[in-house]
């Protein structure tokens, strides 16, 4: 069971309190109705599914109930950092897995 730091509660809590909510930083177009099929496909269906660093959304379901973003290494399952929803993708990541 993973330990996840909620950026709103500012503490590490067990994975049981959280739900994964898919990849992060996929913005919904303000003019979604006018989007082309290709653009909608990219927005709705295409995900990076990386081996390595993934930016993803989590919800502190059984805590503060806030959605937030996390950077996780899909190989080691290690969380590198978490940050609040709406904040930009971090430019620099803290030191990779030791």
């Amino acid at each position: 069971m993973l330990l996840i730091r909620c950026p709103y509660c500012e503490e590490e809590r067990p994975e049981l309190e959280f739900r994964n909510a898919g990849e992060a930083h996929i913005a919904r177009s303000p003019n979604i109705a006018g989007e082309s099929d290709d653009d909608f496909e990219k927005f709705f269906f295409i995900r990076s599914n990386p081996k390595g660093i993934i930016y993803e959304r989590w919800r502190h379901m059984h805590g503060c109930a806030r959605f937030f973003n996390a950077v996780r290494d899909t190989v080691s399952d290690r969380f590198l950092m978490t940050y609040k929803a709406g904040e930009p993708k971090p430019a620099k990541l803290p030191g990779a897995a030791k």
Binding site: A21, R28, R57, R59, A65, R66, F67, A85, G86
Partner: peptide, 8 residues
């Protein structure tokens, strides 16, 4: 609902 309200 919460997802859209909080993030979109």
């Amino acid at each position: 609902m919460e997802d859209y309200l909080q993030t979109e």
